[in-house]
Amino acid sequence: MKSAKFAVSVIALAAAAGVAEARDQIQIAGSSTVLPYATIVAEAFGENFDFPTPVVEGGGSGAGRKKLCEGVGENTIDIANSSSRIKQSDIDTCKANGVDEIMEVRIGYDGIVFASDVNGAEFAFTPADWYNALAAKVMVDGALVDNPNKSWSDVNAALPAQAIQAYIPGTKHGTREVFDVKVLEAGCEATGAAEAMKAAGDEKAEGCLALRTDGASVDIDGDYTETLARLDANKTAIGVFGLSFYENNTDKLRVATMDGIVPSTDSIATGEYPVSRPLFFYVKKAHIGVIPGLKEYVEFFVSDEMAGPDGPLAAYGLVSDPELAATQAMIANETPMAPLN
């Protein structure tokens, strides 16, 4: 093993011949939901500062946090973008690899919208409608039965008589987590199915997240562009999108309301629209002062100029965080995040 490592290092060194310079650009990886925002900031940062444009990679929230926790040093990334909050297991891995202090930066909120083809029917949903449409087991006349609903009008007489066909994000997406919690679990509670499941011995009501498998609900593992292409092919289907994606494709999509609220940056900021989530990035504190421009980038990201309600991020679809000033102060003081509670 040792000789193998030596041989590889020799090859690497021979190739590196004299290139021992320090890394001078920030490296970022993680959530594909945060990716467009990070690229917008990186681009503006490279234009307006003397530092090189940061390199931003996608790959998913979990993968990004894992990379962040690989250790300290120039070969590890500086920032992990994440569309869900860091988990205790990530923090433990980080600790084990010497990454003791992480700064948690909340950049704003993202909404999740339900949309169909622009020429399709109008939909006004509630979480209960979605639960009754997609769940494996639903309540009918006070008993849990296999989902019998064929069309949206079976679910709720007020909805159009259109066959149920939904394209929802696959389980590897952070978006799915929000869909599970804010739509399916909420619907499960509202219809009373959760209670029936608990009574039947499923104490945590895990059955709430079990979806029907007859093809009415299709997991999309690709990006929103794939969901959009599916909607294009099947005009009567409903797709689940991020708010920013919808805002960039308003000419092709008709958005549905949830609990009577139209999703918009305003209705999400006020908390009226129920299906939203905070977006984060996590900074490796040990790299501040080592990687040139890292603190400046983080400060620039959460500045009012970028992340404020009139900034380019809001123009792209980010819901500005009302507590942005607190985040700015936290970064100025380089306060690491407190333990998760």
């Binding site: 190739a15 650009q25 990886a29 990186a42 490279g46 444009t53 931003v56």
Partner: peptide, 20 residues
Amino acid sequence: GMVAFVREYPDAPPEGFFDP
């Protein structure tokens, strides 16, 4: 990590081989 958003041109080789 080559599937990244990179805006800076890499330097001339050989240093450029190590730039993103």
